[in-house]
């Protein structure tokens, strides 16, 4: 059998020849990509929260007396810092969507 004849035989093999552009296949791939991204984000957030909890557990006994001394004067600054941190985290999470609108962060 010549190479061309073998090639023709292999190419005529129906089960091995999928559609040129199968939208359902692409959708399934993108679903798996999203699932993986979600799992990675959850793992990242869980790790960051655990690290923060450990850090606070170590630091708070030393910081608490200082905070009590400052009293209510520090409250606005703490609230502002917390709001800024949440906004920064939110922007970080939605930056792929913002990129689609031409906004790069």
């Amino acid at each position: 059998m010549s190479e061309d004849a073998l090639k023709a035989l292999l190419m005529a093999d129906e089960p091995a020849t999928p559609l040129a552009r199968d939208l359902s296949f692409t959708i399934e791939v993108m679903q798996k990509v999203e699932r993986r991204r979600l799992i990675e984000n959850i793992a990242l957030c869980t790790g960051a929260c655990a690290a923060l909890a450990v850090l606070l557990y170590i630091v708070m006994p030393h910081v608490t007396p200082g905070l009590i001394t400052l009293g209510q004067a520090a409250t606005p600054a703490v609230i502002m810092l917390a709001c800024l941190a949440m906004a920064a985290f939110g922007l970080y999470q939605i930056r792929p969507a913002l990129r689609e609108f031409g906004i790069r962060l």
Partner: peptide
């Protein structure tokens, strides 16, 4: 850079070649 639209187009363009190879 994180564009899902670009990646889905890559999947669309190359799926036949990859699936054909893997099916064999």
């Amino acid at each position: 850079q994180g564009s899902d639209e670009a990646f889905s187009r890559l999947v669309n363009d190359h799926q036949q070649a990859v699936r054909g190879f893997v099916r064999r």
